[in-house]
């Protein structure tokens, strides 16, 4: 906790940390601009962007792609270099998972799984950067441009923003529906929703059951990732409220434990993406 913020109570500190840097349309004036308070951001409703979430996730995604692209361009079938080895082990790991769980034929699934896996790992890893560093940096930049330091919000971990996780899971949801219809035909997909698991007589019940089943996929995918990362971030913020000389005794073990969660959540997300894609591609399940 930075010393000049002594006047802000702990609650405000936490709230401040959990507020996104929001750029949106002011509902009253209709003007697009940065929200200065949490209330203002909330009032903007749907017509707003979280600049921090988008910015951080874009930078991380671009880093991932650039790194993999630059190594991928220099790929050689001879003795691989260290970086190439590293990338190959990741690709092999993803490939193995896809081979193990995905029985269809679709060249998109493995790259999709790779992108989701690495991107989520990178986004989650932002959680391990001490909670005040990047917000403080953002604050200084904001002050440099003449903003009130208390009104510069910056939430570092994109996956603690449900927008990010839902954005990804909706993408997966669209793919599930697209490939279900493409592989099974519109009739086949509808039949799966209507006549399964109890046959024609229980049609409304079937539709309800399968509908919930279908909707639950993206929702659980997004909420699981969001919930885990949000809780982890919350605990880091709470630890940051302690006197600075004792913080390490809690933040270090939690950070070490969190490394596990970072990787585990990314792995779960990737595995579920592969499994959902497999289910969408399965033709004769019944």
């Amino acid at each position: 906790m930075s010393t000049e913020n002594e006047l802000i109570a702990s609650g405000d500190y936490i709230k401040h940390h959990l507020q996104n840097l929001t750029y949106g349309q002011n509902p009253d004036t209709g003007v697009w601009g940065l929200a200065h308070t949490a209330q203002e951001a909330k009032d903007m409703g749907f017509m707003a962007f979280h600049l921090d979430t988008l910015g951080v996730s874009f930078v991380l995604g671009a880093l991932f792609l650039l790194f993999f692209y630059s190594i991928g361009k220099k790929m050689t079938a001879d003795t691989p270099s260290g970086a190439q080895n590293f990338i190959e082990s990741i690709v092999e790991f993803i490939d193995e998972n896809v081979r193990g769980s995905f029985n269809g034929k679709n060249p998109m699934v493995a790259p999709l799984a790779l992108t989701a896996f690495i991107w989520i790992i990178l986004m989650n890893t932002m959680d391990l950067v001490p909670v005040d560093w990047l917000p403080y940096l953002a604050q200084q930049i904001g002050v440099f441009f003449g903003a009130d330091p208390h009104h510069v919000f910056f939430k570092v971990v994109p996956t603690t923003d449900p927008n990010a996780t839902f954005g990804m899971s909706i993408g997966i949801f669209i793919l599930i529906i697209y490939y279900s219809i493409k592989e099974k035909g519109a009739g086949g997909f509808a039949g799966e929703l209507l006549f399964h698991p109890f046959g024609k007589m229980m049609l409304p019940f079937n539709l309800f059951l399968e509908g919930v089943n279908l909707i639950a996929k993206p929702v659980s995918l997004a909420l699981r990732l969001f919930g885990n990362m949000y809780a982890g971030e919350m605990i880091f913020i709470l630890i940051a409220l302690l006197p600075f000389w004792i913080q390490w005794s809690l933040s270090l073990p939690w950070a070490i434990f969190h490394i596990l969660i970072v990787l585990l959540q990314a792995f779960i997300f990737m595995t579920l993406v592969i499994v959902y894609m497999d289910m969408a591609h399965q033709k004769d399940e019944h």
């Binding site: 959990l18 996104n20 929001t22 949106g24 951001a41 909330k42 903007m44 409703g45 749907f46 017509m47 707003a48 962007f49 979280h50 979430t53 988008l54 996730s57 874009f58 995604g61 992108t115 989701a116 991107w119 994109p158 923003d161 449900p162 927008n163 990010a164 839902f166 954005g167 990804m168 909706i170 993408g171």
Partner: peptide
């Protein structure tokens, strides 16, 4: 924690 256009942006980025 507001749901807004960020979601769409994230979807496009993904």
């Amino acid at each position: 924690m507001n749901i807004n256009l960020t979601m769409i942006g994230q979807l496009i980025m993904f």
